[in-house]
Simulated scan of single mutants.
Amino acid sequence: MTIPHPALYAAAERFGTPLYVYDAAELDAALSRVRAAFGEARVFYAMKANPNLTLLGRLRAAGVGFECVSAGELARAEHVGARGEDVLVNGPAKSAQEYAAGARLGATFIVDRAEEPGLLPPRSRALVRVNPALAVSTHDHLATGAAGSKFGVTLDQAPEVLRALREAGHDARGLHVHIGSAIRDAADFSAAFARLAELHPHTGDLEVLDVGGGWGVDADLPGIAREAQAAASVFGARLWVEPGRYLVARAGTLLTRVVGTKQTGRPFVLTDAGMTELLRPMLYGAQHPVTALWGGGEVTRWDVAGPACESGDLLARDVPLPGPTPGDLLAIGEAGAYGASMSSSYLTRSRPAEALWDGTGWTLIRRRETPQDVWAAEVTPA
């Protein structure tokens, strides 16, 4: 993130904290890195990473399509003008509403189980998601290509599912694989692509090979891209990719103020943001960089803890900080993905505002909720 510290202070003063801020330049740069690595591959943004409409509109204007996993995400895609081959419908348990919405938009469906050819709307475009049954270098909850995960069909099932799609009158475009998120080792992708290539004798040439996303923010994209392109060439297929976290993680920062400090068995700095604003540390053991936006004082190590009455409400452990005092501002990095999108109103906490930095100034792209917003959908009996 390249937003200068004075601008971050200005945002915190103007919009309050906790606050999600996004750097437009970093979002654009991440997309440029993907396109430089993958060349002519078609890019679909995995919307679950961050569905803010302003960010979606920016990606849409750059020619990016969307991978959607719910009726709500499909509605967002339609709202920013995406239709037809610019929309993918994914998920292991699609509802009738989601099939109908996808059909109305003319989307491509990613088939996740053997029964699904009989559930698709008539004459659908489809890809078959294959589970390569690999152990990969990420948290178990993020490993979607493991043998025990709920995603995809087996390698043995994939050719038959392609045949079933064609026999049902659908346009079976090709294969799809996504082995997880925040994957650190490029060899995991090489292994997955190699297993897909083994299917060629049983499938013949295909129109599309969709290799998903899941690359860590420090991944060797050119190396991964070479492996993906080699796999696509085996099938004579066009390459599709679905980055989510890679595009938006480093573009986003969570700003939070210090509420106070305390010492129990460990030293804690208490902040006004916590698990309701950034769930990943509690859910996945994710480690986010933490930067103190103040100077001075002896540097000692602190656990950064939020306000929820939950022992797991920790944003980071053993963070070196220079003498935190109430009101000081912390920047939690790599929060552009699965920060706002996983935020919650647990404890009737109001979800934070979101703001976009364009290099010269701030634009509010989501206002802070009020308590009334949180309970607006509740029905009080007369």
Rank of each mutant, 00 (worst) to 15 (best):
G102W: 03
G102L: 05
G102N: 13
A103I: 11
A103F: 11
A103R: 11
A103V: 09
A103W: 11
R104H: 13
R104V: 11
R104E: 15
L105F: 15
L105S: 10
G106Y: 14
A107L: 07
T108L: 08
T108N: 10
T108H: 07
T108R: 10
T108A: 11
F109N: 02
F109A: 07
I110M: 10
I110T: 08
I110F: 07
V111G: 00
V111K: 00
V111M: 00
D112H: 10
D112G: 10
D112F: 01
R113K: 13
R113M: 05
R113C: 12
R113H: 13
R113D: 12
A114C: 07
E115L: 09
E115A: 14
E115V: 08
E116C: 05
E116R: 03
E116F: 03
E116M: 07
E116D: 15
P117I: 10
P117D: 05
P117G: 06
P117S: 08
G118H: 12
G118N: 15
L119E: 14
L119Q: 15
L119N: 08
L119F: 11
L119T: 08
L120E: 07
L120D: 11
L120F: 13
P121V: 13
P121C: 15
P121L: 11
P121E: 14
P122D: 12
P122Q: 13
P122Y: 15
P122I: 11
P122S: 13
R123L: 14
R123I: 10
R123W: 12
S124V: 12
S124Q: 13
R125T: 07
R125H: 15
A126E: 06
A126N: 06
A126W: 05
L127V: 04
L127P: 04
L127K: 03
L127A: 04
V128N: 02
V128E: 01
V128C: 03
V128S: 01
V128W: 00
V128T: 02
R129Q: 05
R129Y: 00
R129T: 01
R129H: 04
R129I: 00
R129K: 09
R129M: 00
V130G: 01
V130W: 03
V130N: 00
V130D: 01
N131S: 07
N131M: 08
N131Q: 14
N131V: 04
P132A: 04
P132R: 02
A133P: 07
A133I: 03
A135T: 09
A135L: 09
V136G: 04
V136P: 07
V136H: 04
S137M: 07
S137Q: 11
S137F: 05
S137T: 14
S137P: 08
D140N: 07
D140W: 09
D140S: 08
D140L: 10
H141I: 12
L142T: 00
L142K: 02
L142D: 01
L142S: 00
L142P: 01
A143T: 02
A143C: 04
T144L: 06
T144N: 05
T144E: 03
T144Q: 05
T144R: 02
T144A: 08
G145S: 05
G145W: 00
G145Y: 01
G145M: 03
